[in-house]
Amino acid sequence: MRPEMTAASLDTTARSSAERGALARARLLRGLLPALSLALVLLAIAWLNPRAISYFGFSLMLNLAIPIALATIAQMFVIAGNELDLSIGTFVGFVGCVTATWLKDAPLIGVAILLGSIGVYALLGALIHLRNLPSIVVTLGMSFVWQGLAILVLPKPGGKAPDWLLAFMAFKPPFVPFPIIAALLIGLIVHFGLMRTSYGVILRGSGGNPAALGRAGWSLLKTKIVLFALAGLFGVLSGMALIGITTSADANIGNGYTLLAIAGVILGGGEFVGGRVSPIGAVIGALTLALAASPLLTFMHIPPDWQVAANGAILIIVLAARVLISRRER
């Protein structure tokens, strides 16, 4: 939401104040679009099944929203640097397998493996920058690596989440369900880090205008490494949160997260190029997908076969709405 203000402020100075007013309205509408889509899905659920709008209902419906939101944030960091991570899903699965085995049985080794995997992410960022590689192909290859490692760690579905993790994910705060508090915290913390700190601006700038940033003396190698390491960190958190909820793991457990995470970022107002991302929007996008995919369809008596299609349809509808708003922006 922020970056377009700085980028667009230059060309708006020449326009009349009336035009500027219309432009501001369109931009506001565009910024509110993620929240509007979420509100719409919530309204539909409330209308179909009023009892779902309760402490218990939300805890249940948003059960898997935390890992999805964390994976979406991970993808958002990569997209902020004009890259794309097609391996985040299998990475989440790999982390899940490590969490359900090593992290429980030998916590020190488990922590070392997880830290090492964040290091691998950082190295990938460096490799992609130094060799000028297409991130799509590199991460597509890495998705096989993580999947292979996950199968090696946990050949058969099973394992068990560490007790402290189970206890943490089962936390029941008063009044507001845990998933909502967690989503708010994740969104706000990342928003502060990426949108409000000076290095956050540099990170987004590395996607917005890498050449300018490079000439200004900032290391593009370092920004890419930091962005990928952050993606790895949030991927690890996502995998751990997932296992904290499901209690046991399976090498394929995270496979669907790659596409969900990309969809979440885009739904949340992120753009593919130019470092235009929004952490709060991404979390809202993830919540929308989590709610629309299964609870909404169940209440509408639509068979689960169409869950994936609902994600696709929401994505298309929101993007179509965005196109309509952008036309007014011109």
């Binding site: 290859g141 993580w146 292979g148 996950a150």
Partner: peptide, 13 residues
Amino acid sequence: AGVRLLLTGLIIV
């Protein structure tokens, strides 16, 4: 199967 996936991925990268 695990090693096969791992090596396939590494070779592509």
